[in-house]
């Protein structure tokens, strides 16, 4: 409350918490940089020199690059689609008048609490029927738009666009689609960017459904990592080399966009 700088104790406690937060990442690299014979012996926090050797064993064991590419394709497509379709629906709910709008929006909000994940069995049967089992479509199509996205964009666009602007565009003979494209979409950019980041991370981490519907030859990164670990004997210098490699892209994203992600989490808390 006062503008005084806090004591060392505050920094010390926070520092300990952040160190604890970072430690598992470092541990993963530490184990990955050594070999298994050292693992069972004395404890040290100094990395060894075997990381690249272990990493290349990862590439031999699982289709790492293919999995990485698949994860990018899946998360990228899902993110683009969620942002576009959510903004479209959010714009309609926030700024357009139509019969049943209130009821339909209430329905969207209600679905936020529905655990749709529990429908995986019929979903799996349907995918097998369509011949999509094992294909990337199976993990992309079910996630093309989310209730959270629609809700989030509607809340933002409610205040972001003045009603007069939509009205003026209509007077000028703009179709609603063009109004969306030229007025709503540009105005939605800040909220859309945050929705994009969160959707990407969520899709990137998705595990249960990809595990069910994809196979070891055409996996996402998460499914490939699971295969790496599921042998009878777990070779941790190999497995943790895999987790280290999988963590690098996410850490890069975090270093670049961390400030925005922090702001997004805190704004979501106030709005939601």
């Amino acid at each position: 409350m006062t503008n005084r700088r806090p004591s060392f104790l505050v920094y010390g406690l926070l520092g300990a918490f952040v160190l604890g937060s970072a430690f598992p990442f470092y541990w993963s690299y530490l184990v990955a940089s050594r070999d298994n014979s050292v693992l069972t012996g004395d404890f040290t926090l100094i990395p060894g020199g075997n990381f690249f050797a272990n990493a290349s064993r990862v590439f031999d064991t699982i289709p790492f690059w293919k999995a990485l590419g698949n994860s990018f394709i899946v998360s990228g497509t899902v993110t683009l689609s969620v942002v576009l379709l959510s903004t479209l629906a959010g714009f309609a709910f926030a700024k357009l008048r139509f019969r049943g709008r209130g009821v339909l929006f209430l329905f969207v909000v209600a679905t936020l609490a529905v655990p749709t994940q529990l429908g995986i069995i019929p979903l799996y049967m349907a995918m097998a029927e369509f011949g999509w089992a094992g294909e990337l479509e199976a993990v992309i199509v079910p996630n093309l738009v989310t209730a959270f996205g629609v809700f989030w964009m509607r809340q933002y666009l409610l205040d972001a666009i003045p009603d007069e602007l939509v009205e003026a565009a209509r007077m000028d003979g703009c179709s609603l689609w063009r109004t969306f494209w030229h007025v709503a979409l540009p105005a939605a950019r800040p909220a859309a960017a945050m929705l994009g980041v969160f959707t990407f991370m969520q899709s990137w981490n998705d595990f249960l459904w990809p595990l069910v519907v994809l196979n070891a030859d055409n996996p996402t990164l998460q499914v490939a990592l699971e295969k790496l670990q599921s042998g009878y004997y777990v070779d941790y210098s190999l497995v943790l080399a895999g987790t280290t490699l999988a963590t690098v892209p996410v850490l890069i994203v975090f270093l670049v966009l961390g400030r925005q992600i922090v702001a997004g989490v805190m704004q979501g808390a106030v709005k939601g």
Binding site: S21, S28, V250, G258
Partner: peptide, 29 residues
């Protein structure tokens, strides 16, 4: 009233962005 406020907030949020599968394997170890 911290120095480097955003930096601390990012540090606290670090685990949230990590891949769940990777972390579970690390914790298993």
């Amino acid at each position: 009233n911290l120095r480097a406020r955003t930096g601390w907030r990012m540090g606290v949020l670090l685990p949230y962005v990590a891949s769940l599968v990777a972390l579970t394997i690390i914790f298993g170890n």
